[in-house]
Amino acid sequence: METKPKLAMYWAASCGGCEIALVNIHEKIFDVMDSFDFMFCPCLMDTKYHDIEALADGSIAITFFNGALRTDENIHMARLLRQKSQLLIAFGSCAAEGCIPGLGNLSSRQDLMDRIYRDSLTLDDHQGPLPATSTGVVEGNLTLPEFLPVVKTLGQVVAVDYSIPGCPPESHQVWNCVNAVIQGHPLGAKGAILGGGRSTVCAECVRTRTEKKIRTLYRTYEILPDAETCLLEQGLLCMGVVTRDGCGGLCPRVNMPCTGCYGPPEGVLDQGAKMISALGSMLDLEDAGEVNVDDYARRMDVLLEGIPDLAGTLYKYSLAGSILGGKRTP
């Protein structure tokens, strides 16, 4: 009879990277196994939903829930696991703030279906069937989970105890959290972010900063940035300034701008809006006093043309969970 506390990891609308982040703690996974009964993880093992439904409420000690909520199946599992778990942890950016699946909120359900099943250039049959919750075939009736109109974060549907940011969360941070539970250390106030810092990625970035004045914005393929200077100051739209620290500043370390996967820092309600606000202070339109409003607007447009997908860049990870939420679609 297993007496160790039960540990579950579930994926909703997710890529699987979070599971890899967990196993990337390498041999420490044995410590996890020693301390927990790792009993549910559809990515790694064959436990069935009805096995979970059969459990008594609150019988799972910790559930790491990764993935955004895209379908009614995701919602069902979110509610079920909430009911069965003592601690429900939004694991990774998708569960915490919507992440890449959340960008679906910029399009209507119809647009998404058309794009994938009607308009895609790689389709052989542009008139084939669209996925439906119920489709009659000769063999019988096929069912699929319902594709919901908007992507939600875990916290928008059920109460979440803690969140671990990152796409995926850095393994050392995952271990810090798991180890804290193993050691019985307090995890902080309910709702707290685990495995992240209280500042921004700039705090972990070793590049030198002088003055935040951006003349031209570049995409990463357009320039080879110098390895010492702040990437933002070189015109690359590094999201590090509006992103929680905790990752170790890995991307800027290898000459890539931060894309913001650790989400907004403490006290920032909307990562994209905050970046727009900050950019307003950084974009150098030269001596604005010398130009008229139209000219000013034109210069602004020219500068912003450097960011072809503004929403996708500024809200790459946080759209579903942001104040903006997405685009209102029919």
Partner: peptide, 13 residues
């Protein structure tokens, strides 16, 4: 002071 990351965005504004 604990949380400031020294990015410098505020200085010129």
């Amino acid at each position: 002071d604990q949380r400031c990351s020294a990015c410098g965005t505020c200085l010129p504004v």
